[in-house]
Write a protein that binds this DNA or RNA. Structure first.
Lengths: 90, 90
DNA sequence: GTTAATTGCGCAATGC
DNA sequence: CGCATTGCGCAATTAA
């Protein structure tokens, strides 16, 4: 009646106390992980936006260069020297 | 001694029971949100990879077009007609 | 076989 | 009022 499977009540309390600490620790850890994941999402979204911008820029550059090639091919004079055109995009 | 601030024990139990349900519900919700966030990370990473690939491709295209322009400018004959070159990249 | 970590669950306080 | 959210402890289970 006055007993559990534990040797004594002090033993029980010691175990409980240690487990309570472990639980707290584990939950802090979990919370931090969750937080990190949210930050990861933010970071990836920003990265993504940058990449989209870069793609837009490169696509324009390609269009521009194609125009230069076409203009040249159709016999028109290029307004800039190619080297200048290219370096202006670096 | 045999009383709380509640009208009666039944009232108390009803409240407790409802709260327990609410807690369970809330935790399921939380778990689903967390799961969704993880999936979002996966999705963004994939998207990111695709964008990086696209950038690589566009950068090559730019290099190629610059070479064509330079070759042309230095007086050499282009091996392909520009239109063909361009369409080959679409 | 012991100890620490994780998990489901209920309680109570508090937020909305 | 009442549900939702949160910190905390208990006990069972799992991983080290």
């Amino acid at each position: 009646m006055g007993k559990n499977t534990y040797k004594d009540e002090d033993e029980y309390r010691r175990r409980r106390e240690r487990n309570n600490e472990a639980v707290k620790k584990s939950r802090v850890k979990s919370k931090l992980r969750s937080q990190a994941t949210h930050e990861r999402v933010q970071q990836l979204q920003m990265e993504n936006t940058k990449l989209e911008e870069k793609i837009g820029f490169l696509a324009s550059e390609v269009e521009f260069l194609k125009d230069m090639l076409c203009a040249n091919h159709s016999g028109k004079t290029l307004f800039f020297r190619p080297y200048f055109i290219i370096s202006s995009f670096h």
